[in-house]
Design a protein around this nucleic acid. Structure first.
Length: 289
DNA sequence: ACGGAAACCTGCTGGC
DNA sequence: TGCCAGCAGGTTTCCG
């Protein structure tokens, strides 16, 4: 489910519930949810117990809760199917609830993840390589996303044009620009009228700026809708995608008419996943990157 | 340095 | 009805 707008909706949804509260008790189930926390789930739970949350922050698709003291943060990645819910502790436990964190206000923060690609880990905060402030040490390779002030569109555009790679690949490269996933990459490319296989080093600076601008715009629009379309207490995978789906111009529209020119949209396999584009508006390059 | 593929999971859909 | 292939919005890692 989650690309940048969805993760930001989740961040906003939980922020009011967790910031200023402390973690009273933590239950982790299964080995997957804390697999990235090398010392193991018991260590994770022990070190979280009693800590208070001072901020809920995000870069790209990574979310973290800054904890008091020691310069540490609880990093949460939602993977493909992760959800964060704030509920009453006695609410029925979801089938794939892997982490239950009791909050000092009597509520419970739950990490629910069907496919378990997401997870939790406690790490140190280090200086942000891209600006003032700090970030978790495990995400120093993640570039700023288009919606944060540290994002430098000119610099990212230059970096993309220096690479000899395909445009969609570059948009999905979280070390160049973060937060963009398969859906919003296709949407940005459609708006920019560019095929994802265009070579980044053969595009003009303004074309690259254009597609980055479209990526920022479409994610901002999605965020606006996400913010009003679902309850912050229960961010639902199906509810979220079902709602914004109506606004998509490219993703999932194979066979349907292009909303600009009416030509049937096509689906192609790219990077082990699906890409959707208009064969007329987004001309495939003669020379592929 | 880059690209491709596989790995990590569960669940749903569509075809036979 | 069952079975199986294919697919799903992410990231990391390995291999050529």
């Amino acid at each position: 489910m989650p690309e940048l707008p969805e993760v930001e909706v989740v961040r906003r949804g939980i922020a009011t519930h967790v910031v200023g509260r402390s973690l009273i008790d933590i239950q982790l189930s299964g080995h997957r949810v804390a697999r990235r926390h090398v010392p193991g789930p018991l260590d994770l739970a022990d070190r979280l117990r009693g800590r208070s949350v001072t901020a809920a922050l995000r870069r790209g698709k990574y979310l973290w809760l800054e904890l008091d003291g020691a310069g540490e943060a609880l990093v949460i990645h939602l993977g493909m199917s992760g959800q964060l819910l704030v509920e009453a502790p006695d609410a029925p436990r979801e089938k794939h609830a892997h982490a239950l964190l009791d909050l000092s206000d009597g509520r419970q923060l739950r990490f629910v993840d069907q496919r378990t690609f997401g997870g939790l880990q406690l790490v140190s905060l280090v200086p942000d390589p891209f600006g003032p402030g700090t970030v978790p040490d495990i995400i120093t390779h993640i570039a700023p996303d288009p919606l944060e002030s540290a994002f430098d569109q000119q610099a990212v555009g230059r970096a993309m044009r220096r690479r000899h790679t395909q445009l969609k690949r570059a948009l999905l490269d979280q070390s160049l620009v973060s937060g963009i996933g398969n859906i919003y990459a296709d949407e940005a490319l459609w708006r920019a009228r560019l095929h994802g296989e265009r070579a980044t080093d053969r595009l003009t600076a303004s074309a690259v700026r254009g597609v980055l601008g479209h990526a920022a715009a479409v994610m901002t629009e999605a965020l606006g809708r996400g913010g009003t379309s679902f309850d912050s207490l229960y961010v639902d995978v199906n509810g979220a995608s079902g709602y914004f789906e109506r606004s998509l111009n490219a993703y999932g529209r194979q066979g349907k008419p292009c909303r600009r020119c009416g030509t049937p949209m096509v689906r192609e396999s790219f990077m082990n996943r699906s890409s959707f584009s208009c064969p007329r508006c987004q001309r495939r390059p003669r020379v592929v990157a």
